[in-house]
Simulated assay, not measured.
Amino acid sequence: MEHFDSWKDLLNPEFYIKLGGYWLILFIIFAETGLFVGFFLPGDSLLFISGIYSVEMISSAYGSTGSDFLDTTLLALSIAAAAIIGNEVGYWFGRKAGPALYKKNDNFFYKKKYLYQAHNFFAKHGSLAIILARFLPIVRTFVPIVAGIVGMNKGRFFLDNVLGALLWSFSLVFAGHYLDKLFIDQFGIDLKAHLELIILILIVFTTLPVLFKIVFGKHEEPDMPNQP
């Protein structure tokens, strides 16, 4: 079993895969929106690297189906389900107690500015924000809460939630699995030997939109929405 050596491990998706495998990955995906503390966890890179290890993880959890495609599909579906449940919990929390978050003091796990950024993102993109937010670190943690606070229709939220989770999960998990096979077959390169570089590229690529918004976007703090 993998052991914790340094704080760098917390940002390394491979650490979580080797530490707890399939079940820990599902919990992390759920926690990112369901427990509101996962914005610092490696979401997109975790899915991509999970795709590389999909056969190993499914084999360990259930036993392999004998098909790479089915194993990868099962992993992607499981991750999508965890993401959907997490968002539904976030939405419910927003409906019940969300406005109190605007009065909550900042701590290590919670930053009020992220809630404001998510609110602005939701206000700009509306229903599409639920789908788009899946691909944006930090924003995806708080958008479901904002959707609950502003009283987004439950049915509409659920449909957007399912679609966003499926697109996010299948695109990244399958990209990781089949790019790894492509590089091995065509170039003799095992992506597992270059995970640090891959993780760095994914983190830069996925956080650029958020960083651009923080640096160049407007920083007005919207008024706290009224509880529906």
Score class of each variant (00 low, 15 high):
18 K>G: 03
19 L>D: 00
20 G>Q: 09
20 G>W: 04
20 G>N: 06
21 G>D: 05
21 G>I: 02
21 G>C: 08
22 Y>P: 00
22 Y>A: 02
23 W>Y: 15
24 L>E: 06
24 L>Y: 01
24 L>K: 05
25 I>M: 15
25 I>F: 03
25 I>P: 02
26 L>M: 13
27 F>N: 00
27 F>H: 06
28 I>N: 02
29 I>R: 01
31 A>Y: 06
31 A>Q: 06
32 E>S: 10
33 T>D: 00
34 G>V: 04
36 F>M: 12
36 F>R: 11
36 F>S: 06
37 V>S: 11
37 V>E: 00
39 F>V: 07
39 F>H: 13
40 F>H: 00
41 L>Y: 10
42 P>Q: 03
43 G>L: 05
43 G>Q: 04
43 G>C: 04
43 G>R: 08
43 G>A: 13
44 D>P: 14
45 S>D: 01
45 S>M: 10
46 L>A: 13
46 L>H: 09
46 L>Y: 13
46 L>K: 01
47 L>P: 02
48 F>D: 01
48 F>Y: 14
49 I>W: 05
50 S>F: 07
51 G>N: 07
51 G>M: 11
51 G>L: 09
52 I>L: 12
54 S>Y: 04
54 S>I: 08
55 V>P: 00
58 I>M: 08
58 I>D: 00
61 A>R: 01
61 A>N: 09
62 Y>A: 10
64 S>Y: 08
64 S>L: 08
65 T>S: 15
66 G>I: 12
66 G>C: 11
66 G>R: 09
67 S>A: 10
69 F>E: 07
69 F>V: 15
69 F>G: 03
74 L>R: 08
75 L>W: 00
78 S>Y: 00
79 I>P: 01
80 A>Q: 02
82 A>D: 03
82 A>Q: 10
84 I>M: 14
84 I>P: 08
85 I>M: 13
85 I>T: 12
86 G>M: 07
87 N>K: 07
87 N>H: 12
88 E>V: 14
89 V>P: 06
90 G>V: 13
91 Y>W: 13
91 Y>Q: 12
92 W>H: 11
93 F>N: 03
97 A>P: 00
98 G>T: 06
100 A>F: 13
101 L>M: 15
102 Y>P: 06
102 Y>V: 07
106 D>Y: 12
107 N>H: 11
108 F>K: 15
109 F>S: 11
110 Y>I: 09
110 Y>V: 09
111 K>T: 01
111 K>S: 05
111 K>C: 05
113 K>E: 15
114 Y>E: 08
114 Y>C: 00
114 Y>H: 15
115 L>V: 12
115 L>F: 01
121 F>V: 04
121 F>P: 03
122 F>N: 04
123 A>I: 05
125 H>P: 04
126 G>T: 09
127 S>N: 14
128 L>T: 14
129 A>I: 08
129 A>R: 10
129 A>K: 11
130 I>D: 05
131 I>K: 00
131 I>V: 15
132 L>D: 01
134 R>N: 15
137 P>N: 12
138 I>D: 03
139 V>S: 05
140 R>S: 03
141 T>G: 01
141 T>M: 10
142 F>G: 02
142 F>I: 08
142 F>H: 02
143 V>N: 03
143 V>D: 01
143 V>S: 08
144 P>H: 08
148 G>D: 03
